[in-house]
């Protein structure tokens, strides 16, 4: 069965933006563990920045790029979930992220309304392309919005 992992496109995950104290330590740990779970190689679905995040995580996890047995999807929910969020507060974020999160957990993205994604600064390119690959319920390794951006680390497949 095809393995699929979702991680967010947070640039803080890139080594060129490392700090002395990792501001996304918990997210990074969850993301790396999930990427390792993909196996020796995986294809990547994400936008240009997401591709860079994927490359960094796969490099750190020792996963090669390629094949069709596993996929690393880079995407996240809204970036407008608090007044300190990058896109400031937009109350519509909560409904959008809740619906998207539920669809991801259920493994069925067919009913997701993507129309608000751009307005809410959600990064969904990879998610939309992953739609046909995701099936069955997800294991949720991480779900939080520590900086006003909705992050998920999820796994599908066995």
């Amino acid at each position: 069965m095809t393995r699929v992992v979702l991680v967010p496109g947070a640039l803080a995950l890139l080594p060129e933006y490392a700090s002395q104290v990792d501001p996304v330590a918990e997210l990074r740990a969850a993301a790396l563990a999930a990427v390792r779970w993909l196996g020796p190689e995986a294809a990547v679905l994400g936008d240009t920045q997401g591709e860079r995040v994927a490359a960094a995580l796969m490099g750190a996890a020792g996963v090669r790029r390629g094949g069709t047995a596993a996929y690393l999807v880079v995407g996240n929910g809204s970036a407008k979930r608090s007044e300190k969020a990058p896109g400031h507060l937009d109350e519509r974020s909560f409904g959008f992220d809740a619906a998207l999160g539920d669809a991801l957990v259920a493994g069925d993205l067919s009913g997701v309304d993507w129309s608000l994604a751009d307005e809410l600064w959600a990064s969904v390119d990879g998610l939309r392309r992953a739609s046909p690959l995701v099936s069955g319920s997800a294991a949720v390794d991480y779900a939080d919005d520590p900086y006003g951006v909705q992050y998920w680390v999820m796994r599908w497949g066995s």
Partner: peptide, 12 residues
């Protein structure tokens, strides 16, 4: 020569 203590601004 030294990393920032903790940088997240714009990198979320």
């Amino acid at each position: 020569r030294r990393l920032p203590a903790r940088a997240i601004r714009g990198l979320q």
